[in-house]
Amino acid sequence: MSNILEIRDLTVSYGGIEAVKGISLDVPEGEIVTLIGANGAGKSTTLKTIAGLVKSKTASIKFMGNEISGMTPDKIVTSGITLVPEGRRVFPNLTVKENLRIGAYLRKDSLEADFEYVYGLFPRLKEREWQLAGTLSGGEQQMLAVARALMSKPKLIMMDEPSLGLAPLVVKSIFDIIKTINEQGITVLLIEQNANMALQAANTAYVLETGRITMTGAGSELLRDERIKEAYLGKSKKEK
């Protein structure tokens, strides 16, 4: 299968400190790819750079064969990539429906079918359509964040720590939704600290440690790998 996203030599630095040190990764079309790693490994930075929110110095980011590095975030959204930011970041003073409309901000066509689609995925949001997003529970806000991202009709959806701060049951339902979305043909690039859940869901996984990719493999394969378990217990920090 062809790769929908190809990243080569991505280096990002914040104020002289390199957060991402020349990583390369491929996201095959139609798969769930996960990027796991400890806090500060550079996962969020990688996603933000793909979304155009952070500029990289030297990189080639190809999305469906087109170079997108250096493009503005709105162009990247239009080309079919969307980001569900870390910590949900719904617009608290807008209603659920307004949040969804913002998700489709760059689209000019009718949204009715898409409202139906996301309300089908998340019936809870339909009930709370006119409620301010700030009054939703954490799980509902995460659902809204995912639904909002889907409103842009993405080909690739990137999720930054969707399980952050959620109860285990809610996390499970969020992952079920991720699988459902994926089955409907949307490629998913997922970063998670909850490695167990992420690896179970993922076709391919990359392990990121202090700005470098240290391991690659199928999700199920890495799940059984002893070194992965160790990496998660903070071995990488000791080595440094």
Binding site: L53, T82, F91, S152
Partner: peptide, 11 residues
């Protein structure tokens, strides 16, 4: 409400 999220939505 949220500059970064707004930007991520393509605004």
């Amino acid at each position: 409400d949220d500059e970064i999220a707004a930007q991520a939505m393509g605004i």
